[in-house]
Amino acid sequence: MVAAGAAVAEPPTGDAERGKVVFKVCAACHAIGQGAKNRIGPHLNGVFGRQAGGIDGFRYSDGLKRAGVTGLVWDYESLDAYIENPKALVSHTRMNFPGMADAIDRAHVLAYLRRFSDNPANIPEAPPRHPPSPKLPPEVLQIKGDPAFGEYLASECTTCHRADGEHHGIPSITHWPVDDFVVAMHAYKQEIRANPVMRMIAGRLSDDEIASLAAYFADIE
């Protein structure tokens, strides 16, 4: 049931049967349904309401584990954002999936996942009115950052994130692809990512400043 053409676009409502078809791209790594086991990715039974990185015994990336214990729970909004672009929500996730750009496809596949969660009645059938994946006009990703400005701004980052890329307790941010860096910072800025320190730091960075930081850290010696 897709509401289209209205003056204000209503968010799509997913169709689980269509979602079953869309899920085929997920099924390369994820099992779902009776007896589903962890494969390359964790099984997806009961994924709604589960803490990210929450299946005992599955080897998650440090990034996903960190996201989970710092507050990421799989609900409609977070799953929608994750499926749209995994790296926007979780740095260094092992989920090697480029993302599903089509909001309607995502709604379908989420409706399908919903069938296999414990209390589907508690899970909204329609997605929220304000989908939470970072809203990034294409021109934001086109901004050419100034590495010299980035170097000055980076001095704020290196209080915690080591410039040499060593990490323990706080992740490395050196040598990230520029787009990943920009998307991740906007995800903090738009409060999709949870860590409060990073929400605070990113919250006051302009688009230009984020681009400059990304440019600096991408090529740091």
Binding site: R66, V69, T70, G71, S155, T158, T159, C160, H161, R162, A163, D164, E166, H167, H168, G169, I170, P196, V197, R199, M200
Partner: peptide, 29 residues
């Protein structure tokens, strides 16, 4: 921002680990 009373134990553990990372980061800086 400030941590909240009643946070789960694994979040508190993560916050502690974050502080160790911060110490390594700032002393290198």
């Amino acid at each position: 921002f400030i941590s909240q009373v009643g946070e789960p134990a694994d979040l508190r553990q993560r916050t502690y680990e974050e502080s160790i990372g911060w110490y390594a980061g700032i002393t290198a800086d």
